[in-house]
Protein backbone atom coordinates (compact mmCIF):
# COMPACT_ATOMS: atom_id res chain seq x y z
CA UNK A 1 0.00 0.00 0.00
CA UNK A 2 1.14 3.51 -0.84
CA UNK A 3 -0.04 6.40 1.27
CA UNK A 4 0.69 10.13 0.96
CA UNK A 5 -0.57 12.13 3.92
CA UNK A 6 -0.49 15.90 3.50
CA UNK A 7 2.91 15.71 1.88
CA UNK A 8 4.79 18.93 1.10
CA UNK A 9 8.10 19.15 -0.68
CA UNK A 10 10.07 22.35 -0.99
CA UNK A 11 13.40 21.97 -2.79
CA UNK A 12 16.55 23.62 -1.49
CA UNK A 13 16.20 26.47 -4.00
CA UNK A 14 12.76 27.32 -2.61
CA UNK A 15 10.63 25.67 -5.31
CA UNK A 16 7.44 24.33 -3.76
CA UNK A 17 6.95 21.14 -5.79
CA UNK A 18 4.24 19.59 -3.61
CA UNK A 19 1.90 21.55 -1.37
CA UNK A 20 -0.05 19.08 0.71
CA UNK A 21 -0.68 15.94 -1.32
CA UNK A 22 -2.89 13.16 0.09
CA UNK A 23 -3.85 9.91 -1.61
CA UNK A 24 -3.81 6.16 -1.02
CA UNK A 25 -3.06 3.39 -3.51
CA UNK A 26 -4.04 -0.11 -2.42
CA UNK A 27 -2.12 -3.27 -3.23
CA UNK A 28 -2.82 -4.48 -6.75
CA UNK A 29 -4.19 -1.16 -8.02
CA UNK A 30 -3.29 0.46 -11.35
CA UNK A 31 -3.11 4.26 -11.12
CA UNK A 32 -2.28 6.99 -13.60
CA UNK A 33 -0.76 10.21 -12.29
CA UNK A 34 -1.30 13.05 -14.71
CA UNK A 35 -0.66 16.78 -14.75
CA UNK A 36 1.18 19.51 -16.60
CA UNK A 37 4.93 19.80 -16.73
CA UNK A 38 6.39 20.95 -13.43
CA UNK A 39 3.30 20.03 -11.44
CA UNK A 40 5.23 17.66 -9.15
CA UNK A 41 4.65 14.19 -10.62
CA UNK A 42 8.27 13.12 -10.67
CA UNK A 43 8.67 14.46 -7.18
CA UNK A 44 6.08 11.91 -6.03
CA UNK A 45 8.12 9.13 -7.64
CA UNK A 46 11.33 10.40 -6.03
CA UNK A 47 9.69 10.58 -2.61
CA UNK A 48 8.61 6.95 -2.89
CA UNK A 49 12.13 5.82 -3.80
CA UNK A 50 13.70 7.73 -0.93
CA UNK A 51 15.62 9.84 -3.43
CA UNK A 52 14.24 13.03 -1.86
CA UNK A 53 12.64 13.47 1.54
CA UNK A 54 9.39 15.29 2.26
CA UNK A 55 9.52 18.70 3.90
CA UNK A 56 6.44 17.77 5.90
CA UNK A 57 3.74 15.10 5.90
CA UNK A 58 4.14 11.34 5.76
CA UNK A 59 4.89 8.89 2.96
CA UNK A 60 4.12 5.20 3.55
CA UNK A 61 5.11 2.31 1.30
CA UNK A 62 4.24 -1.25 2.33
CA UNK A 63 5.90 -1.99 5.66
CA UNK A 64 7.87 1.24 5.53
CA UNK A 65 5.45 3.48 7.38
CA UNK A 66 7.60 6.61 7.34
CA UNK A 67 9.72 6.59 4.21
CA UNK A 68 10.66 10.25 4.73
CA UNK A 69 12.50 9.45 7.96
CA UNK A 70 13.97 6.10 6.95
CA UNK A 71 17.67 5.99 7.88
CA UNK A 72 19.97 5.98 4.84
CA UNK A 73 21.11 2.43 5.43
CA UNK A 74 17.58 1.07 4.91
CA UNK A 75 16.95 2.95 1.66
CA UNK A 76 18.42 0.13 -0.49
CA UNK A 77 15.94 -2.33 1.06
CA UNK A 78 13.06 0.07 0.47
CA UNK A 79 14.08 0.26 -3.19
CA UNK A 80 13.90 -3.51 -3.53
CA UNK A 81 10.14 -3.17 -3.05
CA UNK A 82 9.95 -0.90 -6.08
CA UNK A 83 10.70 -1.39 -9.78
CA UNK A 84 11.27 1.92 -11.56
CA UNK A 85 10.88 2.61 -15.30
CA UNK A 86 12.01 5.89 -16.85
CA UNK A 87 11.23 7.77 -20.04
CA UNK A 88 14.84 7.44 -21.22
CA UNK A 89 15.10 3.68 -20.47
CA UNK A 90 18.52 4.00 -18.77
CA UNK A 91 19.94 0.76 -20.09
CA UNK A 92 23.67 0.11 -19.92
CA UNK A 93 25.04 0.44 -23.45
CA UNK A 94 27.82 -2.14 -23.22
CA UNK A 95 25.71 -4.89 -21.69
CA UNK A 96 23.40 -7.15 -23.67
CA UNK A 97 19.67 -7.31 -22.94
CA UNK A 98 20.23 -10.39 -20.82
CA UNK A 99 23.10 -8.81 -18.91
CA UNK A 100 21.16 -5.59 -18.34
CA UNK A 101 18.51 -7.59 -16.53
CA UNK A 102 20.79 -10.12 -14.83
CA UNK A 103 22.95 -7.29 -13.54
CA UNK A 104 20.24 -5.88 -11.27
CA UNK A 105 19.63 -9.29 -9.74
CA UNK A 106 23.30 -9.59 -8.98
CA UNK A 107 23.24 -6.05 -7.58
CA UNK A 108 21.04 -7.20 -4.72
CA UNK A 109 23.08 -10.31 -4.13
CA UNK A 110 21.13 -12.96 -6.03
CA UNK A 111 22.89 -16.25 -6.74
CA UNK A 112 23.96 -17.34 -10.22
CA UNK A 113 21.48 -20.21 -10.32
CA UNK A 114 18.53 -17.99 -9.39
CA UNK A 115 19.59 -15.46 -12.02
CA UNK A 116 19.85 -18.10 -14.76
CA UNK A 117 16.33 -19.26 -13.98
CA UNK A 118 14.64 -15.94 -13.49
CA UNK A 119 16.04 -13.72 -16.28
CA UNK A 120 14.83 -15.83 -19.25
CA UNK A 121 11.42 -16.08 -17.61
CA UNK A 122 11.11 -12.32 -17.24
CA UNK A 123 12.41 -11.64 -20.76
CA UNK A 124 9.76 -14.05 -22.02
CA UNK A 125 7.11 -12.29 -19.95
CA UNK A 126 7.81 -8.90 -21.53
CA UNK A 127 8.19 -10.46 -24.97
CA UNK A 128 11.84 -9.69 -25.64
CA UNK A 129 13.53 -13.07 -25.15
CA UNK A 130 14.38 -13.38 -28.85
CA UNK A 131 16.65 -10.34 -28.50
CA UNK A 132 18.39 -11.44 -25.31
CA UNK A 133 21.86 -11.24 -26.84
CA UNK A 134 21.43 -7.86 -28.51
CA UNK A 135 22.84 -4.59 -27.23
CA UNK A 136 20.47 -1.68 -26.41
CA UNK A 137 21.46 0.36 -29.48
CA UNK A 138 20.39 -2.52 -31.70
CA UNK A 139 16.83 -2.29 -30.37
CA UNK A 140 13.88 -0.02 -31.14
CA UNK A 141 12.63 2.36 -28.45
CA UNK A 142 9.70 0.07 -27.66
CA UNK A 143 12.01 -2.91 -27.30
CA UNK A 144 14.36 -0.96 -25.08
CA UNK A 145 11.49 0.02 -22.84
CA UNK A 146 10.46 -3.64 -22.59
CA UNK A 147 13.95 -4.42 -21.38
CA UNK A 148 13.65 -1.62 -18.84
CA UNK A 149 10.36 -3.11 -17.64
CA UNK A 150 11.97 -6.55 -17.44
CA UNK A 151 14.69 -5.01 -15.33
CA UNK A 152 12.14 -3.33 -13.08
CA UNK A 153 10.31 -6.63 -12.63
CA UNK A 154 13.13 -9.07 -12.24
CA UNK A 155 13.65 -8.53 -8.51
CA UNK A 156 9.96 -9.18 -7.97
CA UNK A 157 8.98 -5.81 -6.47
CA UNK A 158 5.61 -5.08 -4.88
CA UNK A 159 5.24 -1.92 -6.93
CA UNK A 160 6.14 -0.71 -10.40
CA UNK A 161 6.70 3.04 -10.74
CA UNK A 162 6.82 4.21 -14.34
CA UNK A 163 7.68 7.87 -14.91
CA UNK A 164 6.45 8.74 -18.43
CA UNK A 165 7.42 5.32 -19.77
CA UNK A 166 5.94 6.06 -23.18
CA UNK A 167 7.32 9.58 -23.53
CA UNK A 168 9.80 8.49 -26.19
CA UNK A 169 7.55 6.06 -28.04
CA UNK A 170 5.09 6.52 -30.90
CA UNK A 171 1.37 5.93 -30.16
CA UNK A 172 1.18 2.29 -31.33
CA UNK A 173 4.14 1.29 -29.21
CA UNK A 174 2.80 3.32 -26.31
CA UNK A 175 -0.41 1.36 -26.41
CA UNK A 176 1.46 -1.95 -26.53
CA UNK A 177 3.62 -0.95 -23.62
CA UNK A 178 0.75 0.24 -21.50
CA UNK A 179 -1.01 -3.06 -22.25
CA UNK A 180 2.06 -4.86 -20.97
CA UNK A 181 2.02 -2.80 -17.76
CA UNK A 182 -1.67 -3.56 -17.39
CA UNK A 183 -0.96 -7.29 -17.75
CA UNK A 184 1.72 -7.03 -15.13
CA UNK A 185 -0.85 -5.35 -12.89
CA UNK A 186 -3.25 -8.23 -13.54
CA UNK A 187 -0.63 -10.58 -12.11
CA UNK A 188 -0.87 -8.70 -8.82
CA UNK A 189 1.79 -6.00 -8.95
CA UNK A 190 0.73 -2.48 -7.99
CA UNK A 191 1.42 -0.14 -10.92
CA UNK A 192 1.78 3.64 -10.82
CA UNK A 193 2.18 5.33 -14.21
CA UNK A 194 3.04 9.00 -14.63
CA UNK A 195 1.99 10.16 -18.07
CA UNK A 196 1.04 13.07 -20.30
CA UNK A 197 -0.86 11.03 -22.81
CA UNK A 198 -4.60 11.67 -22.46
CA UNK A 199 -5.55 9.13 -25.08
CA UNK A 200 -3.87 6.29 -23.28
CA UNK A 201 -5.43 7.30 -20.02
CA UNK A 202 -8.84 7.33 -21.65
CA UNK A 203 -8.29 3.99 -23.32
CA UNK A 204 -7.44 2.13 -20.14
CA UNK A 205 -10.16 3.50 -17.88
CA UNK A 206 -8.16 3.14 -14.67
CA UNK A 207 -7.97 5.34 -11.65
CA UNK A 208 -6.49 8.76 -12.44
CA UNK A 209 -4.89 11.16 -9.97
CA UNK A 210 -4.45 14.65 -11.47
CA UNK A 211 -1.86 17.00 -10.00
CA UNK A 212 -1.55 20.70 -10.66
CA UNK A 213 1.01 23.02 -9.11
CA UNK A 214 1.70 20.55 -6.37
CA UNK A 215 -1.91 19.87 -5.41
CA UNK A 216 -4.19 16.92 -6.20
CA UNK A 217 -7.01 18.47 -8.22
CA UNK A 218 -8.89 15.31 -9.07
CA UNK A 219 -8.78 11.64 -8.13
CA UNK A 220 -11.37 9.47 -9.75
CA UNK A 221 -11.84 5.84 -10.69
CA UNK A 222 -13.11 4.62 -14.01
CA UNK A 223 -10.56 6.66 -15.75
CA UNK A 224 -11.91 9.39 -17.89
CA UNK A 225 -9.49 12.24 -17.99
CA UNK A 226 -10.36 15.29 -20.03
CA UNK A 227 -10.67 19.03 -20.02
CA UNK A 228 -11.49 20.33 -16.60
CA UNK A 229 -10.05 17.29 -14.88
CA UNK A 230 -6.97 19.02 -13.65
CA UNK A 231 -5.85 20.52 -16.88
CA UNK A 232 -7.05 23.51 -18.88
Amino acid sequence: MIKFLDVCKTYANGTKALKGVTFTVNDGEFVFIVGPSGSGKSTIVKLLCGEVRPTSGRVTLGDYDDVGNLPDRYIPYLRREIGVVFQDFRLIADKTVYENVAFVMRAIGARGKAIQKRVPYILELVGISHKADRYPDELSGGEQQRVAIARALVNNPEIILADEPTGNLDPDLSLELMTLLSEINNRGTTVLVVTHEDELVNTFKKRVIAIEEGIVVSDRKGGYYGKGDGRV
Binding site: C49, P76, Y77, R79, R90, I92, F103
Partner: peptide, 17 residues
Protein backbone atom coordinates in the same frame (compact mmCIF):
# COMPACT_ATOMS: atom_id res chain seq x y z
CA UNK B 1 28.52 5.93 -13.29
CA UNK B 2 25.49 4.61 -15.21
CA UNK B 3 25.80 1.18 -13.68
CA UNK B 4 26.20 2.64 -10.22
CA UNK B 5 23.10 4.80 -10.71
CA UNK B 6 21.06 1.77 -11.71
CA UNK B 7 22.46 -0.35 -8.91
CA UNK B 8 21.38 2.30 -6.42
CA UNK B 9 17.99 2.55 -8.04
CA UNK B 10 17.31 -1.16 -7.68
CA UNK B 11 18.48 -1.27 -4.09
CA UNK B 12 22.11 -2.34 -4.11
CA UNK B 13 23.73 -1.46 -0.79
CA UNK B 14 26.62 0.99 -0.73
CA UNK B 15 28.87 -1.78 0.52
CA UNK B 16 28.01 -3.93 -2.46
CA UNK B 17 28.61 -1.08 -4.89
Amino acid sequence: ADEIGIMKMVGATNGFI
